[in-house]
Design a protein around this nucleic acid. Structure first.
Length: 374
DNA sequence: TCTGGGGTCCTAGGACCC
DNA sequence: TCTGGGGTCCTAGGACCC
């Protein structure tokens, strides 16, 4: 068996993507900028581009690019700082509308989502109406890709946006994208693309034609199978309507590298305090505390500790974060610091225990959990 | 022109237990 | 005479995505 079987019932999956979301929202309140190259990016020396309008993309500007480079590529572009509060509000309105007409929606990030329309009568008609409704109500344009899987739907919307509305079967996708770079496949990032290139695999078609066994030495059995499956646009992953967060984090990149440990510790305390406040606001507690340190040479180090109880207490988390930091004591200037909370208490069973602020962790040596002969 | 901040998932190795 | 195998928990690093 070369690939996992597709689910028995034919699925209809759509991927929705708001075109140039941040830039489009900015244009809603600054219509006089329409038609100009527009770049939404932070202002610091290390800022990156969060969104470029399609006019700006013509200059080679794209998301995640250093803002400094974008300024070189197009000095005349309009640069605006991101306003996430406004973007979140527009996003909320869009996805509320979508939720109003379809049941199975998985929102992915602020501007994307997957819909499962299997069993829905006239799915394309429903989607057409939805796109029109969103446009009318919000002024935002949604690109749509449709296929038998998330992979096909996502690849199609990305290939045809902006203002995309295209449906394709798996077989059609195999043919249509055979000449495209492997990088268009979700899960193939820069590193994997580079390793594939070293094997003479540049396009999706190249990958389609390569026996799985030839990929195993370089990528391992699991990844080899995954890569080949994706090249043939096999994907049975479900549209998940409920996903529970597994971690929360707070990190910051300094405008300039910092070597002073007192300043670093002060930053760590601030990051931990903000993170704990947000975590408490969510009514969540965690028992794993981690720090992240990126040095001036871009090496990234993480240190973590699992506690014997769940917490979102600022003093507790800060103390652990500081301990981890002091034990590591970076010898080089620091570029980035972060604090992370993970291993959350399961809401339902923990709530049922009716305990107070600091719940007991269910560790592997917890005698309450294990019937050990004593 | 040097590369944000928020996440998820996978791998590998060690500790520990039976 | 250093001799196991399986399972879980945990840490650390890395790739990837939006």
């Amino acid at each position: 068996v070369a690939h996992p079987p597709e689910p028995p019932a034919r699925r209809v999956i759509a991927h929705l993507d708001i075109d140039a979301f941040y830039a489009s929202v900015e244009l809603l309140r600054r219509p006089e900028l329409r038609g100009l190259p527009l770049v939404v990016a932070g202002s610091g020396p290390r800022a990156v581009v969060t969104t470029a309008s399609y006019e700006a993309r013509r200059y080679g500007i794209d998301s995640a690019m250093p803002a400094a480079r974008a300024r070189v590529l197009c000095p005349d572009a309009v640069f605006l700082p991101p306003d996430f509060t406004v973007y979140r509000e527009h996003s909320r309105r869009v996805w509320e509308l979508v939720r109003g007409s379809v049941d199975v929606l998985q929102q992915v990030g602020i501007d994307e989502g997957y819909i499962d329309l299997s069993g829905v009568e006239g799915p394309l008609r429903v989607l057409r109406a939805l796109v029109a409704d969103v446009r009318e109500a919000t002024g935002l344009v949604v690109s749509v890709g449709v296929g038998p899987s998330r992979l096909v739907a996502k690849t199609v919307s990305a290939a045809y946006k902006p203002e995309a509305f295209v449906a394709m079967s798996r077989e059609q996708a195999c043919e249509r994208f055979a000449g495209a770079p492997v990088r268009i496949l979700q899960g193939v990032g820069p590193k994997t693309a580079e390793r594939l290139a070293a094997m003479g695999i540049a396009t999706v078609g190249d990958l389609q034609g390569r026996p799985e066994a030839e990929l195993v030495p370089a990528f391992g059995a699991r990844m080899a199978r995954e890569l080949r499956g994706r090249a043939h646009f096999h994907d049975a992953s479900p549209v998940e309507t409920v996903r529970v967060a597994k971690s929360r984090s707070n990190e910051t990149t300094f405008p300039r590298d910092v070597a002073d440990h007192a300043e670093l510790e002060a930053t760590l305390e601030r990051l931990a305090a903000d993170l704990c406040a947000g975590t408490r606001a969510k009514g969540v507690r965690a028992r794993n505390v981690a720090i992240k340190v990126r040095l001036d040479d871009w090496t990234t180090v993480t240190r973590a500790r699992t506690l014997d109880h769940f917490t979102a207490d600022t003093a507790t988390v800060t103390a652990v974060a500081l301990e981890l930091f002091r034990a590591y004591a970076p010898a080089r200037p620091v570029r980035l610091l972060g604090v992370r909370l993970a291993a959350f208490a399961d809401a339902a069973p923990e709530a049922a225990s009716g305990s107070g602020d600091e719940g007991e962790a269910r560790g592997r040596n917890d005698p309450g959990q294990l019937a050990l002969p004593l």
